[in-house]
Design a protein around this nucleic acid. Sequence first.
DNA 1: ATACTATTGAACAAAGTGTTCTATATCGTA
DNA 2: TACGATATAGAACACTTTGTTCAATAGTAT
Lengths: 188, 188
Amino acid sequence: MDRRQRKTRDAIFKAFIKLLSHKNYHQISVQEIIDVADVGRATFYAHFETKDYLLKELCEELFDHIIGTARGGEYHCTFGSAEDSVFLHLLRHLQENDHNILGLLSSENNEIFIRYFKSNLKKLVMSQYAENGKLKDAALPEEYLINHISSSFVETVSWWLSHKRRETPEAVTTYFLATIEPILQERG
Amino acid sequence: MDRRQRKTRDAIFKAFIKLLSHKNYHQISVQEIIDVADVGRATFYAHFETKDYLLKELCEELFDHIIGTARGGEYHCTFGSAEDSVFLHLLRHLQENDHNILGLLSSENNEIFIRYFKSNLKKLVMSQYAENGKLKDAALPEEYLINHISSSFVETVSWWLSHKRRETPEAVTTYFLATIEPILQERG
DNA sequence: ATACTATTGAACAAAGTGTTCTATATCGTA
DNA sequence: TACGATATAGAACACTTTGTTCAATAGTAT
């Protein structure tokens, strides 16, 4: 990729993230992004069809990064112990606050990011727990359960952020697992 | 209230709901609302400061209605049986689809409505279960638990709608309670 | 050095926002 | 019914935003 293209793309992403960290997505105009990125109007539209596409690409980059690192791990699907849970890994990763992702998740923009987060998380939950029979043991439709687990984790993260991350990732993981674990107990 | 005001207000609400049932909130312009409501531009702004305020007032009316009827009931806070659960009542009420509320909840607009829904639901959950000690029995912070219960129910409703309401309200209530009940079991 | 391509900046039409104004219609009430 | 009060219509307004186009310029890769 042309060095100019890379620089422009980076500048736009950086400007967008900066604006998103203290403004609602819908309150940000393309004009502002252009101004902050210090990029020509036509240039912006040469890179991104609309503001929505810019958001989409940003989300994809962020979640590929976050969920990608979690996917690689060798998690034991243990709901009993928090220590090697993939959820703890995610929380720790989020806490590092790469790319200011927490700012994005905690502000008013969260609906949009959360949609992506949840959708990606579902795949992760499925790939981690669907095959090993854990989900089938519960007396509930599998898809309902996957949705429940993913949603609950996303809600847990939102709750954690709204509390200024006062609790440690370990404590939060314990809370979360305490709501999920009992559902997955073997029932005979 | 002046009959003219009432008629205008109604026309605007009706037009807004109609548009919302097949369009995203952010895709609807004031101009469209005016056109569908068949109301003068100045008249709209005499009633609602902005489109956002219109949405806010609509949400308040809808949730006062829905949650209001649930609040009045004499529910037994029984998590074991679905039959007299306040959640079953809510689902049945939603199924009647007053004011086309399901269209609003299931479309892309849901983020906005869901914020209101969840916020009101939290109060309901608190008032129903906070005092009787149920929540305190669980080994989790009370506020985390209330958030978890409310969020899970909202997610359950969304899930139900995304499935075209194939399941009965009774079945959905059973699913939901199966995820909540085990957490609230007495622990000694 | 050359051919290619990205960027710039200005100009543009189209659409939307929220305000202001006057004339008109409708209201509640005496 | 007649009155004053008030809600509405509708047009005009200045303003912002969007997405496109184009010719000139600057940077890249080989």
